[in-house]
């Protein structure tokens, strides 16, 4: 299951971060998300390693930890999406389609004329739709 999702702005400012666990491990998940920002920077600035996936929004698996896998996605507008999952056997196509839906939800949220660009996303509708997307994906 997906335990944490985050949206990070182009200056690495957090726009939205939400964990989906019962346990009290929000801080640990935030730490994992934070660490992944460096990995994204590295991926984007040294695109040779990623080979064929040049300039694609989906960045693939950022790094695996003992219990989690961290995936990343970078839009044209330099907004980063990060997803942390506990499923260790995940197909890339599923993650891709997850990010596509997540991105669509984000675009809907920031197209709100009352949203201030660069500020945290406080929209409840966005939170709900992200929750629904997260619940609809169990990669098994």
């Amino acid at each position: 299951m997906i335990v944490c999702v985050a949206v990070v702005g182009h200056q690495n400012n957090p726009l939205y971060i939400q964990s989906f666990t019962e346990a009290d491990d929000a801080l640990k998940l935030h730490h994992i998300v934070h660490c992944s920002l460096d990995v994204i920077d590295e991926r984007v600035n040294n695109p040779k390693k990623s080979g064929t996936t040049l300039n694609e929004a989906f960045l693939g698996l950022l790094y695996p930890t003992l219990n989690y896998k961290v995936y990343g996605y970078l839009t044209n507008t330099k907004v980063k999406f990060i997803m942390v999952t506990t499923d260790l056997d995940v197909r890339d196509t599923d993650v891709r389609s997850f990010f596509r839906k997540f991105h669509a939800a984000y675009v809907d949220a920031v197209s709100n004329p009352f949203h201030v660009p660069g500020k945290k996303i406080t929209s409840r509708t966005f939170g709900e739709s992200v929750g629904n997307i997260v619940r609809s994906y169990t990669f098994n």
């Binding site: 300039n55 694609e56 044209n76 991105h103 669509a104």
Partner: peptide
């Protein structure tokens, strides 16, 4: 500016990043 800012978010959704 604000209109362009928000439109670009939507219209660049399905494309790879510009180099």
């Amino acid at each position: 500016y604000q209109v362009g800012h928000q439109l670009s978010e939507r219209y660049t959704m399905e494309r790879p990043r510009f180099s």
